[in-house]
Design a binder for these strands. Structure first.
Length: 228
DNA sequence: TAGGCCATCTGGTCCT
DNA sequence: AGGACCAGATGGCCTA
């Protein structure tokens, strides 16, 4: 990934996270019923409780769909079904006037590329399986870009949670008693605005969210044009 | 019906 | 030279 792509992802990641929570189920990142009691909307202590159970029947729409097209002479029906712009290209088309050797080489390259993309999709499926969002037949599978953005935010939140836990342990090791007001170290998944999108609270209003991130236009943020 | 998402093909570039 | 990687183009499927 080049620098500009990275910047793009950075710029839209929070937009996307907001959008994803709405499109792919409220349980993503503890925004919903699965949230820990007493810490409304904050980071769930055990994210694995949901997302690990979710890898049920593998979606047949993409990813690990390995059909008979692993060889050069791949299944032309499958190709057309997939929306190949040139289909099997028995005559005419870009390959029509090329020699048999060139055509064979081209098919070989195509097959390799297909395999490569399947591997990439398998990896994305693996990623989907370990990030917390609502895995259920009634919830749409995460798109590729959504998977990447959600995973990125998940990693960031895990890192912050770990840091907060470390601070908590250090605090407790000092032998201090817990008094009110609660020290920040005792709010393990709290006010980390840098990582957690909405002031550390999922209760942030729609208006707040949209105000905060409306400066970065994104197709994933189009809902902000709608009414809450 | 438009837009989003996807799989596939393709040609170019880089690397081994 | 051959393979990996990448981005653009294309068309199918699905949903709002």
């Amino acid at each position: 990934m080049n620098v500009s792509e990275e910047n793009l992802l950075k710029s839209i990641s929070n937009d996307a996270l907001l959008d994803l929570t709405q499109r792919y189920g409220q349980s993503a990142f503890g925004f919903g019923p699965g949230t820990i009691a007493g810490s409304p909307g904050r980071f769930p202590l055990t994210p694995a409780t949901d997302f690990l159970s979710g890898q049920t029947a593998k979606s047949n729409e993409s990813g690990g769909e390995h059909t008979s097209d692993d060889e050069d002479g791949f299944d032309s029906l499958e190709s057309r079904k997939r929306g190949s712009p040139f289909g099997d290209d028995k005559s005419g088309g870009p390959l029509g006037k090329k020699s048999k050797e060139q055509r064979s080489l081209r098919l070989s390259i195509n097959a390799r590329e297909r395999r490569r993309m399947h591997d990439l999709n398998d990896a994305l499926d693996g990623l989907r399986a370990v990030i917390p969002y609502a895995h259920s037949p009634s919830v749409r599978k995460l798109s590729k870009i959504a998977t990447l953005l959600l995973a990125k935010n998940y990693i960031l939140m895990q890192a912050q949670a770990l840091e907060e836990m470390r601070r908590l342990v250090a605090y407790l090791n000092q032998g201090q008693t817990i008094t009110s007001p609660v020290p920040t170290a005792l709010a393990p998944f709290g006010q980390g605005g840098a990582v957690y999108p909405f002031s550390g609270s999922a209760l942030a209003t729609h208006a707040e969210k949209c105000t905060t991130y409306s400066g970065t236009p994104s197709s994933l943020f189009k809902h902000c044009n709608d009414k809450p």
